[in-house]
Simulated assay, not measured.
Amino acid sequence: MSRKYPKKVRKEFARKLAAAEAFVETWTNTGLASSLITDYTCTLTCEEAKTYSALMRSFGYVNTASSIIADHCEDCDVPSEHFDTDVWTVDVGAMTFDPKLKQEVADLGWTLVLNAEHPREAEAKAEDAVRAHLHANGLTLKPGVFINVSEIKPGEPGSLALYDWIDMREAA
């Protein structure tokens, strides 16, 4: 901190920062930071959720911060106000085919979270990711079958989601 502040003020700021850091570390280490909304049915106002998320993000807990916003949005009247416009959740399905066995393998589905500027780009990235995943595992799409994008939503799923999802976002 700059020396333009009196020593007494610098010490006060240092105490406040240490207290905030201790709060964040304790809440994240005990799991309370990410489970407050879901496990304790705690309802936060929009401003409370944004502030709580910003505090966690400022100490490097980006996933916890995102989870706080996502969980808040499940009960929020205007959830679209909370989402970064470049994060999308895409539900994708495909009928897979094993060319070696010459038979249908399974009807698989994925939920991908990725960065994109608009839904069409998110859809294209999701389809490319599914094709790459199938190729890496020696599978292809069933002949005559396309990748089915069933839903594209802004933001990421909340922790109450009943399914696993694959985080494909680029590191910040």
Rank of each mutant, 00 (worst) to 15 (best):
S34Y: 03
N115P: 11
A126C: 13
I37G: 02
P99W: 02
G93V: 13
L114P: 07
V62L: 06
I152T: 09
Q103F: 00
N148C: 09
N63C: 01
G93I: 10
L112S: 15
N115I: 01
K153L: 14
M1A: 06
A161V: 12
E121T: 08
L108Q: 08
L114T: 13
C76L: 01
P6Y: 01
W110C: 09
A70W: 14
K4Y: 09
A18Q: 08
P6I: 00
K153P: 04
A49E: 03
D39L: 10
E156F: 11
T38I: 13
E25P: 00
S58V: 09
E48M: 08
I37F: 07
M95A: 10
T140I: 07
D167I: 15
L108F: 07
A14T: 00
S80G: 02
I152Q: 04
L162D: 02
W88S: 08
P119W: 05
A161P: 06
S35P: 00
D71N: 12
K153H: 05
E47H: 03
K102T: 02
T89C: 14
R3E: 08
A22S: 11
D167Y: 10
W110A: 11
A124W: 06
M95T: 04
A161Q: 11
W165M: 14
F13S: 01
G93Q: 10
H133Q: 15
L139M: 14
E25F: 04
L108W: 07
E48W: 00
D84Q: 12
I68E: 05
A171D: 06
S159N: 15
E47C: 01
E12P: 00
F23L: 11
P79I: 05
T85Q: 07
E121F: 11
G31V: 15
S35A: 05
Q103N: 04
A161C: 15
V9L: 12
E25G: 00
L160G: 15
W88N: 07
K16G: 01
A122R: 12
H72Y: 03
W110H: 11
D77G: 02
W88M: 07
M95Q: 09
A22M: 02
Y61N: 12
V87D: 02
P157A: 14
F59T: 00
E47D: 05
